[in-house]
Design a protein around this nucleic acid. Structure first.
Length: 284
DNA sequence: CACCATGTTCCTTG
DNA sequence: CCAAGGAACATGGT
């Protein structure tokens, strides 16, 4: 799935396009992709609603909507899973194979597409309550982070993927943040001393902020096909090489030289997910 | 064919 | 009760 930076860039892209627009019709093509899982109830709630704004919480997109006589605002949550995308369909383009939901807005089709169907559009807001703090929030301190790590005997890399610890970090940026903080991924979360916690806290914020800045400067092809072009998530293959250089320091670079010391980057498996790190820069 | 994939949830085990 | 590990979900790329 797109992680926090990808979702943030998408939200910034969508907010001005959707705000003020009315949803004319809703077509649910994959029942699994919506909740409530009855397409009728889902569509009835959303058809005719107006979008008041789009924001992000962790990896969730939050759509502020209003509808009906009372104009009472309500929210729709979007989670892109591993392969979800949202975009206005280019005029005349055929509906993609895995279009899960199609909204008609302003005479155009707004598509929620998801080949693996791990993502969701949901009116159930309970997932938000489970999320930990926003890592980029001004009020988020190293002290908060330390408290969250204190009682965990999990490897710190695995703990970073726990959305109740900090919201928004995924498999790519977990490895990237640990490299930046020069902390070995196998370390138990509670074994980090205060200085290490602070380094990792800074690294997380730095890595996420830079990724957002990078994503904001790349010419993104929102409706593009193909998911592993090495560029942010949405990029077009033609431009990928130019922008992908040095974007990631360790993720998916097993066997390649560390950009800091030249040692070969190592891949290990933790909690059934790949972790990448430099055995020299990140010593236990 | 085999293996891998930016995520979450549910079940089992300790 | 909790923490931790693993399977399951579904499709596509290499």
């Amino acid at each position: 799935m797109p992680e926090l930076p990808e979702v943030e860039v998408l939200v910034r892209h969508l907010a001005p396009l959707l705000t003020g627009r009315r949803i004319q019709t809703v077509e649910v093509r994959r029942v699994k992709s919506v909740r409530p899982a009855t397409p009728r109830a889902f569509a009835r709630r959303l058809a005719g609603a107006r979008c008041l704004g789009v924001s992000r919480r962790g990896k969730y997109l939050v759509f502020e909507l209003t509808a009906g006589r009372d104009r009472r605002p309500f929210r729709l949550l979007g989670h892109l899973g591993m392969t979800g995308r949202m975009y206005f369909q280019p005029r005349g383009a055929p509906l993609p194979k895995h279009a899960a939901v199609v909204f008609r807005m302003g005479g155009r089709a707004f598509i929620y597409e998801d080949p693996r169907y791990f993502g969701r559009l949901t009116l159930d807001l309970r997932p938000l309550a489970e999320l930990g703090p926003e890592p980029l929030d001004r009020t988020y301190t190293a002290g908060h982070f330390r408290t969250a790590l204190q009682r965990s005997s999990q490897p710190v890399k695995v703990k970073l993927l726990d959305q109740s610890c900090v919201a928004g970090i995924g498999n790519i940026y977990a490895s990237e943040a640990l490299f930046r903080a020069r902390i070995a991924p196998h370390r138990r979360a509670r074994s980090l001393d205060a200085a290490e916690v602070r380094r990792l806290w800074r690294a997380i914020r730095g890595v996420l902020r830079e990724a957002i800045a990078r994503g904001s400067t790349v010419p993104l092809n929102w409706a593009g096909q193909g998911h592993r072009d090495g560029l942010f998530y949405y990029g077009s293959a033609a431009d990928a090489a130019r922008y992908a250089v040095e974007r990631l320091r360790v993720y998916d670079r097993a066997g390649e030289p560390c950009r800091r010391c030249g040692s070969a980057i190592v891949r290990i498996v933790q909690a059934a997910r790949s972790t990448f790190y430099c055995p020299n820069c990140q010593r236990p």
